[in-house]
Every structure is written in structure tokens, then in C-alpha cells.
Design a protein around this nucleic acid. Structure first.
Lengths: 345, 345
DNA sequence: TTGTACGCGTTATCAT
DNA sequence: ATGATAACGCGTACAA
């Protein structure tokens, strides 16, 4: 018996397929004995229902897609692992899709929804501004995770979001550096053209300077390269090398992701600079790795586990019709470690 | 029109559904004009074929599962990304499944095969010894990637494998350390009870000692903790702390993965030891991170990109019936960086 | 070259 | 409590 189907089980037990189906899906209207007999046969034959057939029949397939832009960020890997577990626990299937920085995540989503009959969608990373027209085409519940979303023309009640206040947290870090005497703080961030968290964190940077009544040196604003993955040590490394070559003086570097900061550290070391003696380095995210480099990285910790958990929970609540769409903002934590220090003003 | 199906397209164009199907699947027996008309309608309506229906119809669904044991190893993340791209390029779907260290990957595979009608399977990480009985139940082509597999009772012609010679590479590294005057080399590895690469790398360690005619100090063989992810910085950190507490003298540590080595470095630093002045540290894998820590990590580089590429290619060749199962072994590269040094004997 | 009709494996809706 | 049957959306053998 090569492939066992529900029909085979039905024949073996002398019942109709519908009865077997009821047994599998734990319906109430079935006698315990029949159920037991069927389950035994299933056990014996190793029968496993064909997912495609189920999904075809069901109006909604039990699967959730996670679209990740910037999978090289360990923060995302970490969160995805938690998300995977929780989705699995709900007996749903996770469809993980990496979105290239050139691809439009909404287009990918639209394809996936029809192709796989998704029950819901999770967007991680990427942009927070999307055209209302496209967004409206998304027919299933979706949630932005780690993106303080604010699609301009779209009503807030059509989607959920889970994120820290990127502007505020970024400002927190830059203020800390300014308070510690730093005046020339370089920032390594995304191109402001893509409306990603980089833009928000940049705004926080500018705001901190403004509040302190200090002028920003625009030559210290450095944009990540397109040649490498956006969130990669190599990118932070290359941009910092470039910054060093420019001879523009600075006493601190704020990177919008920890991985970038780790790359920056290498560039500084190679230039013979000591951290934090010569240059302070600050990151963002609070990934585990930050505690395993030397010096340990000063950063803003995002409550990743909590956010991952809440992402799935929130999405399922909407899918189940239990709750409306929500927008949760989390508090980041300024972790002052060893890579930053106070300097004389 | 909420959900567009092949029927809608057929009606719109005044043709039969089968004609639309032929257009979609690029059959030859269809007139260019009809085809063009149909494609236009598809474009306009944004029709996307339902995957479940296709998979149900096809005897084999176009999907490949990757079962990963130890996803926390960046080597795997890196390889998976490449694998994802290549599978996508072949118009197949990737089913990524993380296997917990307590789970049996073959059991998970068996479920997935029936549930999703997989066309093929890729095993990453995990054990290389499996019961023949279970393995024989796998009805689709499968390949072990990064596992120099040798299921004892199973014929080599029933599966493929892609890996470095773990024993040899490990021996290479330990020999290098021995040649450089180290006599007391601690090794951090898996429990030998699970038949993973850790066991092979341990055998290489023992072999190197034997060839050098030096006795092994068993107290320097340290097993990873169950409390943390196997391939994690934290595990390397904790085990090394434990080793330091034991007061057993050693001049070098060889970790069977780079992430462990990075954890070990932190423990050594916290104990006030300098690397490589007081202790040499060596890793295995050759992940990018090794070049971004200070000192840069001496390691064995696995040709990850090549292996990832070949994994997919090899699997598709078997699926397509183009080639037989193969077992490819790759050469690792000893990268001598800054974390190891020669010592006086 | 195109259309007709059936079946893939499952679940849901009716009867019984 | 159980059975018969239609339907989910698509691909394909066969007929035209």
C-alpha cells in the first residue's frame, strides 16, 4: 500500500469516509468506539491527511506567512524561531519567505495569499509606507512586526503592528551620547528613500541634536551600501572604513543595528583606534552577540521574545475574530555596556 | 470578483479551462494568439493558480523540505538562504522546518512527506546514524547536507550527501595546534551519544593526538550543555567557564563550531586571560562572524556557498532522474588567523 | 489546436 | 451516529 488515503481507512474499518474525517477532526458527533477503531487503523497504517486536499476544501488554509526583509539581522532570526514555534503550536503551517531588498513585500504577499490561501501575514523588516491601493488588496489579516507602521492613507483598523517607538529609542541613545560629552556623533543608517526603521531612527538622531541645541554635521550621516546585505557586519565595516577615509572627525558612532556596530568596531580596530577610548560605538536591537564581542556593545534592547510572542498572539486573535486590530508599542531599554564612554567636553 | 479561478479566466476568454491550463503551464499545443489573449486576462485579473489544487492534482507537489537541527548555527542560516534562492529559482516551494534537538528528524520527515507530498528532502545538521527501518520509509529523494552520513545498514545508493570530511578536518586543526607546541588542548564538543558531527570531530582530535604519540587528558574533553542551544555562543561560554573552574591546565581550546569558540573567548576574557597569549582558541565552520571578533578566529572553513549550491543541484538531479545518488566530500581550509599562536614546548 | 469530463483527497451538507 | 454525495481548483486523457 504505497500511499494511504482516507478511503483506505474507511474501507478497512467498514465505515464511510465522512466518518473517518469526523474522527480525524475531532468532531463530537461520533461514537467513541468507532472513533477508537478508526484511530487504531490510522495508527497502524501511518496515515497522514494530505494537506493540499484539506486546504483545497477548506475556505482558508491553515497557514501563516512571514515575510522577512533583512533576514541577515540576527534579531529577526531569533524572533522567527519563536514565531515558528507558536504557529506550530496552533497547528498552523509557517510559510517563511525571504524578501530581497529589491522586491516589494506587498507584491510578494499578494502572490502568496492566492497561491497558498493564507490565513494571515506577518511582515518583518522592510518599509512602513506602502501605497494604500496595494495594501487594500490584502484580503487577510496582517501585522507589521518590528515596524512602527503608519501607512499614510490606510486606516489603522485594517492591520496590526508590534514595535518599539524607533524615533524615541533612537533619540534616547543619541541623547545619552550627547549627555556624555559627545558632539560629533556619526550615524550609520539606511537610505532615507526607503521608508524603513532607519528613517525613524535617523529622525530620533536629529531630534536629540535639536533638543540639545547642537547643529548636526551632515557629513557624519552615513548611508549603508547597496553592495552588501543591509543588516550585515560587512556593511557596517565598509561604511565605517569610508567614514574614516573621509577624515571627518567624530568621537562616537551610532549604528541603527547591532550587526552594523560590530562591523564598525572592526574598521575602527583596523585603523588602530581603541573602543571606547578613542571612539564610542553604540548599536540598536540588543542581540545576544553584543554581549560576546569585546568591548560589550552599548545598545537599545528591543524586547524581542515578547514582541515575537505578541505578534503571533495578536494575529491569531484577529484571525479568530476575537479582537480588533491593535497597535502595540514596546519600551526599549538603554543598555550601557563597555563600548561607550563619557568624554571631556 | 473576490477570488479569481481558472474558470473565470476561461469564461472571460471564451475558451475551456483546459486551454487556460495549457497556457499557464506553457504547453506547446496552443496557438500563440489564444495564449496571448489568456495571458492578458490573467494579467488583468491578477489571477494566481491555487497551489493546493495543483499539488493535489500532481502526483508530486513541487516542494522541498529542509529540516534543520541547530538553526542557531549561522553557518546553516547562511546556507539556507542560498538553498532558498535556488529552490525558488526552480519554481519549487521551500518548506523550512526547525527540528528541536529532542525531536527525531526522520519522524518529522515522514510526517512532512505525506502531509505535503514533498518532492525531496534536505537534512541539515543532526545525526548521521539512523535506523535503517525508518530511513527506508522515506519514499522521496533525500540528501544529507553538512553531514558526512553513513547510516550503517542503509545502502549508499538510497540517498546523497554533501559534506566535508569532519574527522580529517578536525584532525587538521588539532595537528596544527600540536605542531605549534600545544599539548593540553581542550575540546568542546557534543555528547558522543548523539551521532553528530561532534563525534567525528572528536575522533579527529583523538587521532591527531595518537599520531603525535601524545596521551589525551580526558578531563579536557568537555561536553556541551543541554540547557542551551547546542550551537550557541552561550553554550561555549558556559562550558568554558566550567572548564576554567576545574583548574585543569590547558593552553588551547578547540571548539567544534565557531559560535562556541566565540563564547569560549568571552569566558577566557572574563577570567582575565589573553587570547592567544595565554590561551589559543580554534573554531570550526568559517563563518563570517569569525572575522569580526577580536582576535580574529582561527578556524576550518567549510565551503558553505558551494555546498549549499551543490546540495540543491544534486537533489534536483536525482528528483529529475538525471543522475544517481552521490556522496560528495569537500575540502576544508585551515584559516590561521589571530586567535592561535605557537608556544614554547 | 481546442473542448469535455473525470479525478486528485478531503470536508461539509444533507439525508437517514 | 453514520452514510452518500457534492464541491474545492486544477491538470490531463481522450475525443473532436
Amino acid at each position: 500500500m504505497e500511499v494511504v488515503t482516507i478511503k483506505d481507512i474507511a474501507k478497512m474499518c467498514g465505515v464511510a469516509t465522512s466518518t473517518v474525517s469526523r474522527a480525524i477532526n475531532e468532531h463530537s458527533d461520533i461514537s467513541p468506539e468507532t472513533r477508537a477503531r478508526i484511530m487504531e487503523a490510522i495508527e497502524k497504517t501511518g496515515f497522514i491527511p494530505n494537506n493540499s486536499a484539506r486546504n483545497l476544501k477548506r475556505t482558508e488554509a491553515k497557514s501563516i506567512a512571514v515575510l522577512v526583509k533583512g533576514i541577515t539581522n540576527p534579531l529577526f532570526s531569533h524572533m522567527i524561531r519563536i514565531i515558528e514555534e507558536e504557529i506550530e503550536a496552533q497547528k498552523y503551517t509557517l510559510v517563511l519567505r525571504h524578501v530581497d531588498s529589491k522586491e516589494d513585500e506587498i507584491d510578494v504577499a499578494l502572490t502568496l495569499i492566492k497561491e497558498k490561501r493564507l490565513a494571515g501575514l506577518i511582515f518583518m523588516g522592510g518599509e512602513f509606507v506602502h501605497s494604500a491601493g496595494k495594501l487594500e488588496k490584502i484580503t487577510v489579516p496582517y501585522i507589521f512586526s518590528t515596524i512602527s507602521a503608519r501607512p499614510e492613507e490606510v486606516s489603522e483598523s485594517t492591520y496590526s503592528s508590534i514595535a518599539v517607538d524607533d524615533r524615541k529609542e533612537s533619540k534616547k541613545m543619541v541623547s545619552y551620547l550627547l549627555d556624555n560629552g559627545h558632539r560629533d556623533i556619526a550615524i550609520i543608517t539606511n537610505d532615507t528613500l526607503d521608508h524603513s526603521v532607519g528613517q525613524l531612527r535617523m529622525e530620533g538622531y536629529l531630534e536629540a541634536y535639536r533638543e540639545h541645541g547642537i547643529a548636526v554635521n551632515k557629513r557624519l550621516i552615513r548611508i549603508l551600501s547597496d553592495e552588501y546585505d543591509q543588516y550585515s557586519m560587512m556593511n557596517g565595516y565598509q561604511v565605517t572604513k569610508e567614514l574614516l577615509r573621509s577624515k571627518e572627525p567624530f568621537t562616537a558612532i551610532f549604528c541603527i543595528a547591532d550587526v552594523l556596530a560590530i562591523g564598525a568596531c572592526r574598521a575602527l580596530r583596523e585603523a588602530g583606534l581603541l573602543i571606547p577610548k578613542d571612539v564610542s560605538v553604540a548599536g540598536f536591537d540588543g542581540i545576544e552577540l553584543g554581549d560576546f564581542v569585546s568591548p560589550r556593545l552599548t545598545t537599545i534592547r528591543q524586547p524581542a521574545e515578547q514582541m515575537a510572542h505578541d505578534t503571533v498572539q495578536c494575529l491569531f486573535e484577529v484571525i479568530g475574530g476575537l479582537k480588533e486590530h491593535r497597535h502595540k508599542t514596546y519600551e526599549g531599554e538603554l543598555l550601557i555596556k563597555e563600548s561607550t564612554k563619557q568624554i571631556a567636553t
